[in-house]
Simulated assay, not measured.
Amino acid sequence: MIIGPYINGAAVLVGALSGAALAQRMPDRLRVAMPLTFGVASMAMGVILINRAAHMPVMVLAGILGALIGELIFLERGIGKVGSFARALVEKVVPAKAGGLSQDEFLEKFVAILVLFCASGTGIFGSMNEGMTGDASILIAKSFLDLFTAAIFATTLGYAVATIAVPQLLIQLSLAFGAVLILPLTSPQMIADFSAVGGLLMLATGFRICGIKIFPVANMLPALLLAMPISAFWSHVF
């Protein structure tokens, strides 16, 4: 029985609702400091995953080609429109407070945490691992981190953060149920290269959350789809 994705989705939902409800009581120093901590943590996890790469050229090539595809199809713009729709939908029920984030500021942060929640290496691997072994421990551990992350970001982004629980749940369920078909076709090298590409995205996401450099993280998502095929080709040829 698959339970990890449901627990992780519930953690994001509860965290976001709690953070948005308690936003007025949250000290400003926490709103500023905690996202920076999450950004650094994302960069640290990204570096660890990148170091596990079996073939470094595979990670570089997948990252470049994935970003190229994402730019050509305007993927981040499309995700931004989804974020705008989610914000407008939520604000019909819960009006935004005066003096909140501008639309550009909101989309910049929303896209970053959308990638952090939905495309993290931990979530993807944890979902596939549970699908194959029935072990939900990785996703349960991730749920504790997501609970507090969603709460902190919801203090500035509002109840719209709660909508991220829906795509996250759908992605994790798809990976968990599809893992039975996917993982038998993979090798340890392919999984390592896949994790390294996920680490590259997490590193870029950390820079974005900290406001150091606004990488187009969403446009880099196709790299995850290319990682395993390129890794298999590289191993066969070289």
Rank of each mutant, 00 (worst) to 15 (best):
A21Q: 09
S127G: 15
P57I: 02
G83C: 02
A33M: 14
L101M: 01
M1A: 15
S18H: 01
R31H: 00
H236G: 03
G63T: 10
I73D: 04
L116T: 05
I140C: 13
N51K: 13
L175N: 03
S18C: 07
F38P: 06
L169H: 07
F110Q: 03
A88L: 04
G70S: 09
I140W: 15
A119L: 15
L36V: 11
A162C: 00
F153D: 06
F38E: 09
L185K: 08
F74S: 15
F38W: 13
M26P: 01
V237K: 11
L116V: 12
N219F: 12
H236S: 10
A20K: 03
V90P: 02
V197D: 11
S143Y: 13
L65I: 15
R208C: 06
A160M: 09
G78N: 09
M132R: 12
I191A: 06
F238A: 12
V47C: 11
L183Y: 09
H236K: 12
I48A: 15
T149I: 10
V12D: 01
A151T: 02
I2K: 05
Y159F: 14
V115Y: 06
G126L: 04
L203T: 12
N129F: 13
A141R: 10
A23P: 06
A96H: 03
V82Y: 10
Y6G: 02
F153W: 07
Y159L: 08
L89E: 09
V58R: 04
G78L: 08
V217L: 11
S143M: 13
M34G: 01
